[in-house]
Each structure stands twice: as structure tokens, then as C-alpha cells.
Design a protein around this nucleic acid. Structure first.
Lengths: 248, 248
DNA sequence: CGATAAGTTGACTCATATCAAGCCCAGTGG
DNA sequence: CCACTGGGCTTGATATGAGTCAACTTATCG
């Protein structure tokens, strides 16, 4: 859905595409009305920085559409992605007034923003928001810990396979394109972004993708479009135990 | 404080050593009474496993004293620590009935447990608990992300220095032993546990500690007692920007 | 058409893992 | 009291996976 459309269409929360997954998921209609009063939309183009780590941040937000990344850096420029923000994910932390990470749009994105102060007040009066935020935060913590295992202990090949498996899963869940065993999807990240996600260099990412292709684990069409002939094979390459995680 | 003492002394929450930092931190005395009704203590000896990943877990808990670790493993035995549980930290997840990680006591520990079901019900009626838990979970998420940067992008030497800095900071905060610039503390982890924390092998941990000692960044007395003559030097070795984090 | 960004591939280096030997020290039992 | 044992740790020699540097290909866009 193009950014302009969303900004027009979603004036009402009830029509919002992320209505049942975002922080507001549990709100009843009167609660939604309160949120409606303090919300506003912002969009960013692919490549734009939403906010720099350390900058003052006087809002919190939900990603409505598009993808953004959360990154941390060391002074010498080494950077590590610490989160991938997908539609319905929450940005910012109530009770903190500067950004802890760099946030960058990797595709065009639309965010549903709330000024922090009113949002915090609303949260105190509206347990449903806090409850949902707790749930989402616990999920993110689990995801972060899964990622720690990947970063600390997996080989480059396993890292790539894990990333592909996660993207494939998410795509399958969203698009419901459960074409019998044969999955296909587009990578939403550049090789460099993948490297930052996986704690590798972009050259290693490129080599391992080539290797997986050479070994028939995946097929490539162009640089970004991936087909997975045998998902179990991919999972096996990822090194996880059978299930490996859960749908995102 | 020895385990037996705590189990005797802390019959009343008001005397509890973690009263102001744990999930119950914001509770008022009537709320505390409710918690009091459903709580019970359990202790574990150093080395004991508290629970295995995947096992049924019908309680949640706060660590009262001692240290435990959260670890994940791959089938072939590679293991990664994903969390360090210190006094006041919370264990378990409301709304989930099996453990997601292995929990192991690295020292003797005492935990203040709540049966999950009553705790969940209490949480719905007592916003203060949910609020505090959200706050704590957000802190843990930040810590996990800090750790992702370490795992993905830091060198072995920087990883060791970072770990030492964190332990030193925590110790200084707790013990208030702000002996002018000169910090000293005991490592609460074996070389192997450090390796699992840092995504290294135990040999590399050992070598890097020796190297830091040789270079005068730290001094060792025995295997576990560390003295840091110049904390800024250590921070510099850790590769973080000046502040590097926050007190834990 | 250049020009630029994304991606691939090769040659070489280097940090960390791996394998192996041995030290230190506390605890145990003869 | 001493030999023995085992866990925690250190150190050395060697192997290897991933990083680095550099050249080249593709695709896209003015």
C-alpha cells in the first residue's frame, strides 16, 4: 500500500492495517478515540534516517507500513543492527527522552506517531496499552536472544540460512502464499544491511549466498528474489533444532 | 547473605533485600499483601539447573540473592548465554507455560516464586506490577541489544574488557566501594561461562585475560580476583564510546 | 553513454578455534 | 601424610573461517 494512500485512508484507527497487531491491538473503541486524538502520521523515504541515536525523541510510534532498522555503532564505524522494524512494531520507549539507536528507513515507510507526553499519560489510564506493550516487548526480547545465539555461535553459512528462513517465514505468514513447499520471496535488505544484521562483512554475505545457490539450497533470480525449493533443507542449514523459532 | 537467613528473614516483603528493585517495587502495602499470599521461596546450589528449556514452568520468580544464567544451545552443543540473572531480576514469562531457556545457578541462589496462574490474575488487577515488569523488560531489551553489538562486532579483547567493565560497574554500584579510582572485584563466572557469554572459546578468554594482565590493564590475584588500576583505560579497551552503558 | 551504487569474485592475511599438554589447588581416601 | 583425582585454568602449535583489499560485473539513472 503506497504511503500516500495510508495517510489518507487511515484517518480512522478502525481502518488501520495494523489495528490488531500494534500497541493499540487491545484497545476498545473509546480507548481508540483517545489515541486518535493524539496521533499523527509521518512518512520517510527509503534510505532516510528517522532519528539518530542520542537525539531528542519526543514521540513514540508504530510502523504502519514499510521496513526500518535499528542500529548501534562503535566510534570507529563498526555497526550492528539490533532490530528490524516491521509493520505493527513499536518504536521508542515511554519514559526515555532521547533515542537509544539509529533508526533508518530501508523502504519507504509510514509511521503512526504519538507525542510522548500525552501517550505516557494515556498509558497510565489505559491498562490495555501497557499490557500490549509488555507483550510486544517480551516478544522482542525473545527475538533479541535468539539473535544473540546466532551472533555468538553460528557460522557465516548458518547465519545466512537463518536470515533467509526468517524472511521466508514472515513472508509466508503475511502473504499466505503457502505454495506447496516451494517458497519464494524478495530480500528486503541490501547485502550490506544483511551483513550488519548478521555480524559479517558484505563480502562474506555475498560469498555465502553464492555458496547456498551453488549447493542448490536456494535459487536466485536477480539479486534479491529468492526461491527455496526445500524449506526443511534450509532450516537444516540454519542449524536450529527442527522448529527454530516462531512465526513473526 | 546466606540462603538460610533469607528464607527466614524475608517472610515479610517489607524486609526483603530486593524490595525496591524487583517486580514488586512499585506495589503499595495492600498489594504487597496479595503477593505475600502467593509467594514461596526456593533455593538452588551453585551448579544446579533451575529449569531446562522446554520444560513445563508453572511459576515466575524474582532472584533474591545469588547469580544465575540464561542459556540457549544448538543441538551440537554450542551454547550461548543470553542473560545473566542478578538479584531483583525477574524469571519467566506471564502467559507462557514452558521455559524458553536453560536456567542454571552459578552461585547458591534464592528465588522468590509465584505460581504463574495466580500471579497473572494478580497482574490484571494490579497495574503497578505490570508497569514495573514493562520497565524491567525494556531495560533487559536494551541490555540484550548492547550485547548484540558486542557479539557481532567486538574483538575478543574488547569483549573481555567490556565484560570486566560491566562486572566492575555493577560491583561498584552495589558495594559502594568507590575506592578512589581503584576498583577491585571477584569474577562471578568461570572462564567457560565467560566464553559462553561472549561467544568465544574458553581458551581465547584465558589468553585475552592474560594479555590484559600483561599489558597492565588489570591485575589478578588468584584466578578470580581482579583489580583495575585505571577504569578509563579499561573502558577504552572495551571500545565503547566514553560512557558505554549505564549502571546495572 | 558515463557515472554511481550494488553485488561478485579472487588472492591473501589474520584472529580466533581447535587440539593437545601441562599446571595449580582443593578434596578424598588409603 | 601422601598419592591420586578432577576441575578450573593456562599455554603452545597448528588449522581454518572470515576479514581485508582490490578488481571486476551489473543494473540503474541522469
Amino acid at each position: 500500500m503506497p504511503a500516500e494512500d495510508i495517510q489518507q485512508l487511515s484517518l480512522h484507527c478502525s481502518d488501520c492495517p495494523i489495528r490488531h497487531r500494534a500497541v493499540c491491538a487491545r484497545c476498545e473503541s473509546t480507548e481508540l478515540d483517545r489515541l486518535e486524538e493524539i496521533k499523527y502520521y509521518r512518512s520517510f523515504e527509503a534510505g532516510q534516517t528517522v532519528i539518530w541515536s542520542g537525539d531528542k525523541m519526543d514521540f513514540v510510534a508504530s510502523v504502519v507500513s514499510g521496513i526500518a532498522t535499528l542500529t548501534q555503532t562503535l566510534e570507529d564505524g563498526r555497526t550492528q543492527m539490533v532490530g528490524l522494524l516491521l509493520p505493527s512494531d513499536f518504536v521508542g520507549r515511554p519514559g526515555r527522552d532521547s533515542a537509544a539507536y539509529n533508526i533508518t528507513a530501508t523502504t519507504d515507510i509510514v509511521m503512526c506517531c504519538f507525542r510522548k507526553k500525552p501517550f505516557e499519560e494515556l498509558m497510565l489510564r489505559t491498562p490495555h496499552i501497557g499490557q500490549r506493550l509488555l507483550e510486544m516487548t517480551l516478544d522482542e526480547l525473545d527475538a533479541a536472544r535468539e539473535w544473540m545465539l546466532l551472533l555468538g555461535r553460528k557460522t557465516a553459512r548458518e547465519k545466512i540460512a537463518s536470515l533467509l528462513a526468517i524472511v521466508a517465514r514472515r513472508d509466508a505468514a503475511i502473504q499466505l502464499r503457502v505454495a506447496q513447499g516451494q517458497l519464494a520471496f524478495d530480500l528486503p535488505l541490501t547485502r550490506e544491511a544483511m551483513a550488519d544484521y548478521l555480524g559479517l562483512t558484505l563480502e562474506t554475505v555475498s560469498r555465502q549466498i553464492s555458496a547456498l545457490k551453488r549447493d542448490g539450497v536456494i535459487e536466485l533470480e536477480g539479486k534479491r528474489h529468492v526461491t527455496v525449493p526445500d524449506f526443511d533443507r534450509l532450516l537444516c542449514e540454519a542449524g536450529d533444532d527442527s522448529d527454530g523459532g516462531f512465526l513473526v
